[in-house]
Amino acid sequence: MKTEATVSVPPGGKDDTEVLSEQLEKYDALKNAPQPKKTGKNKEITVFLVDDDLLFLKALEHSITSKLPSATIKSFQTGEACLQQIKLKPEVVILDYYLNSTVPYAWNGLTILKQLKKISPKTKVIMLSAQDSLDVAVKCIDNGSFDYISKTESAFVKINNVLSNIIDDYNTNNKGIKPYQVISMVIIIILMICFLLK
Protein backbone atom coordinates (compact mmCIF):
# COMPACT_ATOMS: atom_id res chain seq x y z
CA MET A 1 0.00 0.00 0.00
CA LYS A 2 1.28 3.44 -0.92
CA THR A 3 0.03 4.96 2.23
CA GLU A 4 1.90 2.33 4.20
CA ALA A 5 5.14 3.12 2.35
CA THR A 6 4.84 6.86 2.88
CA VAL A 7 4.29 6.43 6.59
CA SER A 8 6.60 3.59 7.51
CA VAL A 9 9.64 4.30 5.29
CA PRO A 10 11.15 7.71 5.94
CA PRO A 11 13.45 9.43 3.40
CA GLY A 12 16.53 7.69 4.85
CA GLY A 13 15.17 4.35 3.62
CA LYS A 14 14.73 2.86 7.11
CA ASP A 15 11.78 0.61 7.83
CA ASP A 16 9.34 0.77 10.76
CA THR A 17 11.37 -1.51 13.03
CA GLU A 18 14.60 0.45 12.60
CA VAL A 19 12.90 3.78 13.20
CA LEU A 20 11.10 2.42 16.20
CA SER A 21 14.18 0.88 17.74
CA GLU A 22 16.10 4.14 17.25
CA GLN A 23 13.32 6.06 18.93
CA LEU A 24 13.17 3.58 21.77
CA GLU A 25 16.94 3.90 22.27
CA LYS A 26 16.60 7.67 22.42
CA TYR A 27 13.74 7.26 24.88
CA ASP A 28 15.79 4.95 27.11
CA ALA A 29 18.79 7.26 26.95
CA LEU A 30 16.66 10.21 27.99
CA LYS A 31 14.96 8.28 30.76
CA ASN A 32 18.21 7.04 32.27
CA ALA A 33 20.28 10.17 31.75
CA PRO A 34 21.25 12.08 34.89
CA GLN A 35 18.87 14.96 35.36
CA PRO A 36 20.47 18.26 34.42
CA LYS A 37 20.94 20.84 37.14
CA LYS A 38 17.82 22.87 37.40
CA THR A 39 18.32 26.54 36.80
CA GLY A 40 14.73 27.61 37.17
CA LYS A 41 13.02 28.51 40.38
CA ASN A 42 12.99 25.51 42.72
CA LYS A 43 10.67 24.96 45.65
CA GLU A 44 12.03 26.64 48.75
CA ILE A 45 11.79 24.07 51.49
CA THR A 46 11.90 24.58 55.25
CA VAL A 47 14.17 22.21 57.13
CA PHE A 48 14.16 21.79 60.92
CA LEU A 49 17.35 20.45 62.53
CA VAL A 50 17.14 18.86 65.97
CA ASP A 51 20.28 17.85 67.87
CA ASP A 52 21.46 18.41 71.43
CA ASP A 53 25.05 18.62 70.19
CA LEU A 54 25.56 22.28 69.33
CA LEU A 55 28.74 21.58 67.37
CA PHE A 56 27.05 19.05 65.10
CA LEU A 57 24.03 21.33 64.73
CA LYS A 58 26.21 24.23 63.55
CA ALA A 59 28.15 22.01 61.13
CA LEU A 60 24.94 20.58 59.68
CA GLU A 61 23.38 24.02 59.33
CA HIS A 62 26.49 25.28 57.51
CA SER A 63 26.63 22.24 55.24
CA ILE A 64 22.98 22.51 54.16
CA THR A 65 23.13 26.28 53.70
CA SER A 66 26.24 25.93 51.51
CA LYS A 67 24.73 23.27 49.26
CA LEU A 68 21.07 24.33 49.27
CA PRO A 69 21.01 28.10 49.74
CA SER A 70 17.28 28.29 49.02
CA ALA A 71 16.42 26.11 52.03
CA THR A 72 15.15 27.82 55.18
CA ILE A 73 16.82 26.26 58.21
CA LYS A 74 15.66 26.33 61.81
CA SER A 75 17.72 24.64 64.52
CA PHE A 76 16.59 23.26 67.87
CA GLN A 77 18.49 21.57 70.70
CA THR A 78 15.47 19.65 71.97
CA GLY A 79 12.65 17.83 70.24
CA GLU A 80 10.11 19.61 72.43
CA ALA A 81 11.26 23.01 71.07
CA CYS A 82 10.91 21.63 67.52
CA LEU A 83 7.36 20.41 68.20
CA GLN A 84 6.39 23.87 69.43
CA GLN A 85 7.26 25.26 65.99
CA ILE A 86 5.76 22.43 63.94
CA LYS A 87 2.87 24.72 62.95
CA LEU A 88 5.35 26.15 60.42
CA LYS A 89 4.90 22.84 58.57
CA PRO A 90 8.52 22.10 57.61
CA GLU A 91 8.93 19.84 54.59
CA VAL A 92 11.82 18.04 56.33
CA VAL A 93 12.95 17.46 59.92
CA ILE A 94 16.44 16.11 60.53
CA LEU A 95 16.25 14.55 63.96
CA ASP A 96 18.93 13.06 66.21
CA TYR A 97 18.02 9.77 67.87
CA TYR A 98 19.57 10.63 71.26
CA LEU A 99 18.42 13.98 72.59
CA ASN A 100 18.80 13.65 76.34
CA SER A 101 22.49 14.14 77.03
CA THR A 102 22.01 17.73 78.22
CA VAL A 103 18.43 17.63 79.48
CA PRO A 104 18.13 14.18 81.15
CA TYR A 105 14.35 13.89 80.84
CA ALA A 106 14.09 15.32 77.34
CA TRP A 107 12.17 13.14 74.91
CA ASN A 108 14.36 11.01 72.71
CA GLY A 109 14.28 11.15 68.92
CA LEU A 110 11.95 8.19 68.52
CA THR A 111 9.28 9.75 70.74
CA ILE A 112 9.61 13.03 68.84
CA LEU A 113 9.38 11.15 65.53
CA LYS A 114 6.08 9.54 66.59
CA GLN A 115 4.69 12.93 67.68
CA LEU A 116 5.84 14.61 64.47
CA LYS A 117 4.20 12.00 62.29
CA LYS A 118 0.94 12.41 64.24
CA ILE A 119 0.89 16.21 64.00
CA SER A 120 2.39 16.66 60.54
CA PRO A 121 2.23 13.36 58.60
CA LYS A 122 3.52 14.90 55.36
CA THR A 123 6.76 16.11 56.95
CA LYS A 124 9.67 13.88 55.97
CA VAL A 125 11.82 12.96 58.96
CA ILE A 126 15.46 11.97 58.50
CA MET A 127 16.79 10.28 61.62
CA LEU A 128 20.42 10.65 62.70
CA SER A 129 22.49 8.73 65.18
CA ALA A 130 26.16 8.50 66.13
CA GLN A 131 25.41 4.82 66.69
CA ASP A 132 25.45 2.64 63.59
CA SER A 133 22.78 0.21 64.72
CA LEU A 134 20.48 -1.78 62.47
CA ASP A 135 17.94 -2.16 65.31
CA VAL A 136 17.72 1.60 65.75
CA ALA A 137 17.44 2.12 61.98
CA VAL A 138 14.62 -0.44 61.66
CA LYS A 139 12.78 1.07 64.65
CA CYS A 140 12.98 4.52 63.04
CA ILE A 141 11.80 3.37 59.61
CA ASP A 142 8.97 1.36 61.22
CA ASN A 143 7.78 4.53 62.91
CA GLY A 144 7.62 6.54 59.71
CA SER A 145 11.15 7.89 59.33
CA PHE A 146 11.93 8.75 55.68
CA ASP A 147 15.61 7.81 56.05
CA TYR A 148 18.21 6.91 58.68
CA ILE A 149 21.75 8.26 58.46
CA SER A 150 24.59 7.54 60.87
CA LYS A 151 26.81 10.41 61.96
CA THR A 152 29.95 9.39 60.14
CA GLU A 153 32.16 11.75 58.14
CA SER A 154 30.01 11.14 55.07
CA ALA A 155 26.79 12.09 56.90
CA PHE A 156 26.70 15.63 55.49
CA VAL A 157 27.05 14.45 51.89
CA LYS A 158 24.30 11.85 52.45
CA ILE A 159 21.98 14.38 54.09
CA ASN A 160 22.45 16.88 51.26
CA ASN A 161 21.78 14.15 48.68
CA VAL A 162 18.57 13.12 50.41
CA LEU A 163 17.47 16.77 50.64
CA SER A 164 18.28 17.36 46.95
CA ASN A 165 16.19 14.32 46.02
CA ILE A 166 13.29 15.57 48.13
CA ILE A 167 13.48 19.00 46.46
CA ASP A 168 13.68 17.35 43.02
CA ASP A 169 10.59 15.28 43.84
CA TYR A 170 8.65 18.39 44.85
CA ASN A 171 9.73 20.19 41.68
CA THR A 172 8.96 17.20 39.45
CA ASN A 173 5.48 16.83 40.93
CA ASN A 174 4.85 20.52 40.34
CA LYS A 175 6.25 20.62 36.82
CA GLY A 176 4.10 17.82 35.41
CA ILE A 177 5.28 15.71 32.44
CA LYS A 178 8.99 14.94 31.95
CA PRO A 179 10.56 15.10 28.42
CA TYR A 180 10.96 11.31 28.18
CA GLN A 181 7.28 10.92 28.96
CA VAL A 182 6.40 13.21 26.01
CA ILE A 183 8.67 11.16 23.70
CA SER A 184 7.09 7.91 24.87
CA MET A 185 3.63 9.30 24.10
CA VAL A 186 4.78 10.36 20.59
CA ILE A 187 6.16 6.85 19.96
CA ILE A 188 2.88 5.28 21.05
CA ILE A 189 0.93 7.60 18.71
CA ILE A 190 3.27 6.72 15.78
CA LEU A 191 2.82 3.02 16.54
CA MET A 192 -0.94 3.40 16.61
CA ILE A 193 -0.92 5.24 13.26
CA CYS A 194 1.30 2.52 11.73
CA PHE A 195 -1.00 -0.16 13.07
CA LEU A 196 -4.12 1.54 11.73
CA LEU A 197 -2.62 2.10 8.29
CA LYS A 198 -1.45 -1.52 7.85
Binding site: D53, L55, F56, A59, Y98, N100, S101, P104, A130, K151
Partner: peptide, 16 residues
Protein backbone atom coordinates in the same frame (compact mmCIF):
# COMPACT_ATOMS: atom_id res chain seq x y z
CA UNK B 1 23.29 5.97 81.69
CA UNK B 2 24.16 9.68 81.78
CA UNK B 3 27.85 8.91 81.31
CA UNK B 4 27.03 6.91 78.19
CA UNK B 5 24.84 9.75 76.88
CA UNK B 6 27.56 12.37 77.42
CA UNK B 7 30.26 10.21 75.81
CA UNK B 8 27.93 9.52 72.88
CA UNK B 9 27.31 13.23 72.37
CA UNK B 10 31.06 14.05 72.43
CA UNK B 11 31.96 11.56 69.67
CA UNK B 12 31.38 13.77 66.58
CA UNK B 13 33.22 16.74 68.12
CA UNK B 14 36.51 14.80 68.08
CA UNK B 15 36.01 14.03 64.40
CA UNK B 16 35.43 17.72 63.61
Amino acid sequence: KSLRATAHKMKPSFSF
